[in-house]
Design a protein around this nucleic acid. Structure first.
Lengths: 134, 134
DNA sequence: CCTTGACCTTCCAGTTACTGGAAGGATTAA
DNA sequence: TTAATCCTTCCAGTAACTGGAAGGTCAAGG
């Protein structure tokens, strides 16, 4: 099948699929006219990558996972290690964002948000502490 | 002061500070020898940007915030609007990451992580459901 | 006076994972 | 034959830096 059909089947932009070929992630055969020809196995790989990407795996992780996917003699430990690393990264990101959110909230909450210039947010960013140092 | 001193004072890489000039975020005067000359006001701006960036504001938001910082007639409402938008984005990101984490966890947990090839993570990514469809 | 080392300059390229668009060939239907 | 789709490749842009090369400037030491 041509790239358009593969794209539609998977709900991926053709541009993205071409990109995956460019970086040698999913490389289809070519028809005589030069068109990319995707077979069922290619489409499975596209689906695999699509799901891995949607779970936040990097394209590089996808490359490794894809090779494990294709390897009938893989050790599930290898897969699990990648996934656990990624999980740890996600947890770290969540923690970081929660901290950001809380800090930001403490600046935003006391801001009156009116027409006057006094602004705890600006003060906070400028490094001015609100407390009146006696 | 030269860029090196400003960089050290703020704990920012000189490269980053040059970049901020390139994008016209913090543009210092120049000495006769062509060196960048940062005065106290520039350093304050660098600090302001540094803090805003560390709170996750985009460089573009920083530009706007910086102009509000310098505007004695600003309305705090304008500042607050930007900060609240950003807060909303952060919340959305946290929610998204939590979903990712949970989904990933449900794939990782049942994986034995041994030398055998059977792997619920690979199966999940491949779109194979675990349940034995009777 | 000259050299060495630290500091400064500009410019170019690379990072991540695409996305948009231009120019032009292939295919299909009318 | 022509028009509408589809396909191709190639180039550029996104965000926010970061690394590195080639070369100018400056202060200290011999």
């Amino acid at each position: 099948m041509n790239i358009g059909e593969a794209a539609e089947q998977r709900g991926l932009p053709a541009k993205t699929i071409r990109y995956y070929e460019e970086i040698k992630l999913v490389v289809p055969a070519r028809s005589e006219n030069g068109y990319r020809a995707y077979d069922g196995r290619d489409v499975n790989k596209l689906q695999f990558v699509q799901r891995a990407r949607s779970l936040g795996f990097s394209v590089d992780d996808c490359r490794t996972l894809l090779s494990l996917y294709e390897d009938k003699h893989r050790a599930s430990a290898d897969v699990k290690a990648i996934a656990e690393d990624h999980l740890t990264e996600i947890e770290a990101k969540i923690t970081e964002l929660r901290t950001l959110r809380d800090t930001l909230k403490h600046l935003v909450d006391p801001c009156l948000g009116d027409a006057r210039p006094e602004c705890p947010i600006i003060d906070g960013l400028a490094g001015r502490t609100k407390g009146g140092g006696k």
